[in-house]
Design a protein around this nucleic acid. Structure first.
Lengths: 419, 419
DNA sequence: ATTCTTTTTTTCGAAGCTCGAAAAAATAGC
DNA sequence: GCTATTTTTTCGAGCTTCGAAAAAAAGAAT
């Protein structure tokens, strides 16, 4: 339902805007905030006064105010690190980390452990996560702000409310209600986020100029994941965490996929598929659940050294990715593409076939000059994305609370073209 | 850049909201508008007073006020048909229509003609459209409101600013600048819209309950088109009119497509592909540009009558559509699907193979019970979509002018899940 | 050392918007 | 004709933002 804009929404909205401007710019002066938000100086003055009074923002004693020009020096504002904190948890195959992050986005404490995720029972898995959070909270210094949000990044499919892990390759259990468990124990709102979505959030945060409105992050590991940003915000399907790029069909009724179906992109481009082909096991060989990085590096070396099955396996992976990206571009044209994960270490073996395939698709016709950003280690990105996502929640829903902004307020289509 | 909400944006926004509420509800009372927008009665009273003074809205003399209850009767408000008018032009293969529509959305006049679009020169094609607009304007009655917007719906690819037809199967010319030509002659802002996008807009207007946030309209004709609605607004790619579902890859290096590439969905599911296969011409046979509906009906009859090439051709079309939809669902899960166009008349021959293919995809796993809405005649939908799109522009940009609403105002991701 | 310039930030009154309560309007029921 | 009921308008209060002017704080000039 369309809903009108009330008068108090206005303040809420502008408060959120000021917080966002400070988070983005780091240590902006009031004048810079006014310029960034197009609000008047007096308004910024009023809003920042109340934010300072509430200890959300602090005056960061005009330290490195660049070359001090003439005139009254700007006084830098910064987010008060002690205003709040959030927990970012990253759970992947046999690896778990929990990180406590202050309101300014800096790491306070971290706990890393290596549970055997494939063999743990459902209760043990949940307990492992809870215990990691417990440990990292115990490790926090006295001055840390109250924990106001937790985000758990996991490879797999979550429900659309981000409360439950529906399915994941790292555990045999389905429908694991992580968010409820964490909320029950710690009394802090929590969400379960898809790892690739968090990667996309992190990329947008790191390079907002490059990763602006539409882009895609593809994770190359044992499986193939995707995080999709459309019109500047994360796109997840209507019913689940969305973006299952790896399970688009590449070859109808083709190679056996980990998901039980046939011909998925992943069944050609996932690590298990590359390994399977390199070892000449045929397309019906059951996918390996856990392949260590060293094995994949060996395969890549072998592929570089001489023609043969290994080289062919990487080329087939590239071909699958190229056709998949071509179809993706045909549909939604998400210009920059980031490839993330250990699989990128063999990108030199993958790229030629990928570009060749892409060039043969309709979506790829404008992509001849497309460059791919590579990032081998996905874990820091996932952690960073979780932290950003959690902090954004605190910014909007706790420090600028009120009614949700009208969905209607999104720019209408004919206008969005002009912008 | 994020931009703050100014004080006057508020009025603009709420004005637009009231206009939208009236357009949606038809003849609502002030009380109903207040309920729909969650604004107070006093605000609605003020805003509607000024809209009435400006002759945008009129009091529609409490006519059919249902069973007149006790109390002061509601006075229905309606859009003033004479406040403005828009022109919706639909150009398709060898067919052209221009329709003048009043501000209340009712048809005032129409002009239908049959130019040979494939053989006209670029200038003649533009002139044909301009002439149709000229004729329909001449046919308007005296009381019609000023024309404030034109929208031209065409099969093909338009630029992202909706000003130029980049490519279309209905003409050999590319980069036809229809919008500039129309604006130059008539002095009215004009846009060129993709036909399938307009179909999606029309569906949303006709059944907003069913076609709400995420859905897709697929046009089955000589080519395969798609209109994609994401989060309640039309999605077009970053650079062009987007959604080239028909050119997602079905079979790598497969059948020859009209676009010159190989293996596109269209190269199996388009009319020319069905015809080609039914006649045993092989996958490299050049696509026919114009196939009349009677031919396709004959093929469907033959397929129904007996097994053979015709039946096989429709099954292959279904299979291509099924795998394509499966990939689409894997990516973005746009729950309701509408199939539009003359191709739906053979849907009984297409559906079984389509569902079978869909069931074999990851995206199709939840779609067993998916029902497809069929609509054989696409032209009225395109016209309706153009009219709605043009009227929405008048509503927002002319009758509630001001700065574009902040893009930032879109609901943040964690919130959108709850809604 | 003092005054002038320049730039940032705050203050203050004005204008605009929405809201709630109360009043006015308009009709059905008795 | 009076009362009850519902819709619509009116009016003052309370926010918010804005522009202009004032205040603050520093470097530059004398």
């Amino acid at each position: 339902m369309i809903v009108g804009v009330r008068h108090d929404d206005l303040r809420r909205q502008n408060r959120a805007m000021v917080i966002a401007a400070v988070r983005r710019a780091g240590q902006p002066s009031r004048t810079e905030i006014a310029a960034a938000t197009a609000l008047s100086h007096s308004t910024i003055s009023t809003i920042s006064a109340s934010l300072i009074e509430e200890r959300i923002v602090i005056e960061a004693g005009g330290s490195e105010t660049a070359a001090s020009r003439r005139g009254r020096p700007q006084v830098a504002l910064g987010l008060n690190p002690g205003a709040a904190s959030v927990v970012a948890v990253v759970l992947s195959l046999n690896a778990l980390s929990a990180t406590l992050i202050d309101y300014a986005g800096r790491e306070i404490a971290q706990d890393v452990s290596r549970p055997s995720t494939l063999t743990l029972s459902r209760a043990e898995l949940v307990e492992a996560v809870a215990a990691a959070v417990r440990r990292v909270l115990a490790r926090a210094e006295a001055g840390a702000g109250p924990v106001l949000r937790m985000a758990l990044g996991i490879q797999g499919i979550t429900d659309s409310a981000a409360r439950t892990l529906l399915w994941s390759p790292i555990t045999p259990h389905s429908d694991v209600a992580f968010a409820d468990a964490l909320e029950a124990e710690f009394g802090v709102p929590a969400t379960v986020e898809n790892d690739c979505n968090m990667i996309a959030v992190a990329l947008k945060g790191r390079a907002p100029q490059r990763y602006r409105d539409n882009f895609v992050a593809v994770l190359l590991s044992n499986g193939i994941g995707m995080g999709l940003m459309l019109r500047g915000s994360l796109f997840s399907g209507s019913r689940s965490s969305g973006g299952e790029f790896g399970h688009m069909t590449h070859i109808p009724d083709g190679a056996l996929c980990r998901c039980g179906r046939r011909g998925c992109i992943e069944a050609y481009a996932g690590n298990y598929a590359i390994l399977r082909h390199a070892r000449g096991q045929g397309e019906d060989a059951p996918p390996a659940a856990d392949i260590d990085d060293a094995t994949m590096l060996e395969l890549a070396q072998a592929a570089r050294a001489r023609p043969g099955r290994e080289r062919e396996a990487f080329a087939r992976a590239g071909e699958a990715l190229g056709f998949g990206l071509g179809s993706l571009f045909a549909l939604i044209d998400p210009a920059p593409v980031a490839l993330v994960g250990h699989g990128t270490s063999a990108f030199d073996m993958i790229e030629p076939a990928m570009r060749a395939a892409l060039a043969r698709t309709a979506g790829g016709r404008r992509e001849a000059a497309l460059s791919f950003d590579l990032e081998a280690d996905e874990t820091p990105l996932i952690r960073e994305g979780c932290a950003r996502q959690a902090l954004a929640f605190v910014d909007h829903e706790i420090f600028a609370p009120g009614l949700a902004p009208a969905a209607e307020a999104a720019a209408p289509d004919y206008a969005s073209r002009i912008a």
